Computed example of a mutant assay.
Amino acid sequence: MLGFIINPVSGNGRGAAVWAKLKQHLERQGTPYRAFVTKNAGEAQKMAVELLQKEEVTRLVAVGGDGTVNEVMNGIYESGKDCMFGYIAAGSGNDFARGHSLPTDPLQALDRILSEKQGEVIDLLKVNGRVAVNSVGAGFDGQVAKTTNEAGYKKWFNRLNLGMVSYVVSVLRVLYSYKPCDAFITVDGKSERLPRVWLIAVSNIPNYGGGMMICPQAVANDGVAEVCVVSDVSRWGLLRAFPLIFSGAHVHHPAVRFYRGKHILIQAERPLVVHLDGEVAAVTPITVEVLEQQQTVLK
């Protein structure tokens, strides 16, 4: 059985418009399905569990943004059921679609899902009992995610299909007041103290924040996470280097270093805001564990 979980307000209402097209297409083809439309944050995860445990759904499709992907994937993980995951992009950033080369056209994405191809098995990132699909960020980018999600301008940029601009505006706002601090990172048992850390990003795909290439070498099914650390740089130096992240050229900057591993412990001198796939979920200290070959994605 095919199941859908739809976030109608994602992308400033794009989710509802996309679902209307998909529903018409499904009914025209006579495809049987179950569907839930969310009303509040957190419902997608509960709905995913219910569809998998009560409706015998074997293919579950998220229609929304990266936050919806995160909730549905956590529902699949919580249920313990073997289920293939599909995604139809209708958000502002759509990093999951970009990171896995999924179609941006809703009907084209649906046709691929209905083709019943085997799909690709990917890794997930486990943090404090939850899972992330794209990335985990602590520090500056966690604060940026929090600021963006609370900002009134996010919906205006979404209306113009300029979701990444919201993130850029938030970066500039947070940069003005954010204070870096010393942090400690342990990757597969090897520890290091890092001075004046701005951010630590653990990634399963190259991009986050609506397309920024934070970890260009990240691969979703290689069994390890890519870790990007930005530290020991002035506020002005960080601002000057910021445009490099759009092309991935920041990898050559002296304030940027990378690690790879399966178990990552992040600690800091003060609690740092942590996001999972762009949604604020915790504060440091955290442990990120790579769950290898955990989830099949329909492509």
Rank of each mutant, 00 (worst) to 15 (best):
R59F: 07
E50P: 13
A145D: 03
N12E: 06
F258W: 06
K54L: 07
D123K: 11
G137F: 10
D82H: 13
S170T: 01
S191M: 11
Y33R: 10
N134V: 00
L239F: 13
D123Y: 08
A151F: 12
E78Q: 15
V136G: 01
V219N: 10
H275K: 11
P106G: 03
W198R: 05
V72N: 09
G210F: 07
A151M: 06
V230G: 02
D105K: 14
R28M: 13
Y178W: 06
V133R: 07
P8S: 04
A44E: 05
R196F: 10
K21T: 10
N207F: 15
D141L: 10
V133W: 08
G248W: 10
M213H: 15
G15C: 01
S177P: 12
T147W: 14
N12C: 07
T186V: 10
Q143N: 10
P285W: 03
A44F: 09
V133I: 11
E279V: 06
R14S: 06
I286F: 06
D111H: 09
N70E: 02
E150A: 12
S234P: 00
F85S: 01
N149I: 13
G93L: 02
I5Y: 14
R98L: 12
G91H: 01
R98M: 09
L60V: 04
Y259I: 15
Y176D: 14
P8T: 05
K46M: 13
R59V: 12
P195V: 02
M73S: 13
G13P: 03
F4K: 08
R130M: 09
L107Q: 05
E27K: 14
L199G: 09
W236Y: 08
D277R: 09
G210H: 10
V165T: 12
I200D: 00
V131D: 00
H25K: 13
V9K: 08
Y208C: 13
G189L: 03
K190N: 12
G129R: 12
D182M: 08
Q53Y: 09
N12S: 15
P216A: 04
N128I: 12
P32S: 09
V187T: 12
Q29L: 13
T68L: 07
K299S: 10
A17P: 07
G99S: 00
L172D: 01
G86H: 06
R235D: 01
E71P: 03
A16S: 09
W198S: 03
V131E: 03
K179H: 14
L239Q: 05
V224F: 13
G15N: 02
G210P: 05
A138Y: 04
V227M: 04
T58C: 12
V174L: 02
V165E: 06
D123I: 10
M164L: 12
M164E: 14
A48N: 04
Q294G: 05
L2I: 12
E289A: 11
Y178I: 05
S191P: 08
V274I: 08
D222V: 05
D141N: 13
V230S: 02
S10D: 05
V61Y: 04
G99P: 02
